[in-house]
């Protein structure tokens, strides 16, 4: 099961980087939208409940809520992810606004066109 997660992490990250290497800031923003998923899936893999390791026939671990089952999973990775989700939402919101404004002021979102502005003069 961690293998599935690892593949997901790899694919999402690869797509994000691929989009970041593209030409349009809009596409880059879309890549960023996915970026946090990769991080979160990577962290959730650290909670290592047995079913996720693929141990067949073992009792499923329960959610980290007391009284739900005999063996709750490790709650810390979940807490970390929650924090990270909120933060990435905040960054995302700001970034989108910035891109809107950039598009408006610079009339282009082409990374190469933007690079031509304000280059240090020799």
């Amino acid at each position: 099961m961690t293998l599935i997660l690892a593949v997901c992490v790899a694919v999402i990250l690869a797509v994000c980087i691929y989009l970041m290497l593209g030409r349009e800031l809009k596409e880059v923003a879309m890549g960023v939208f996915l970026l946090s998923h990769a991080a979160h899936l990577s962290i959730i893999a650290m909670s290592r409940s047995p079913v996720l390791s693929g141990a067949e026939g073992h009792d499923l671990k329960s959610a980290p809520i007391l009284g739900m089952g005999s063996q709750p999973v490790d709650a810390l990775p979940q807490a970390l992810i929650l924090t990270s989700i909120v933060i990435s939402f905040a960054v995302m919101g700001f970034l989108l606004t910035l891109i809107v404004l950039t598009g408006r002021r610079a009339t282009t979102l082409n990374v190469d066109d933007l690079a031509k502005e304000q280059l240090p003069t020799p």
């Binding site: 909120v86 905040a90 919101g93 989108l96 606004t97 809107v100």
Partner: peptide, 16 residues
Amino acid sequence: VVVGVSVGMIMRLSEE
């Protein structure tokens, strides 16, 4: 905070 931020952001953007 969460209500304020999400409502605030979306309001401002849709106002734009």
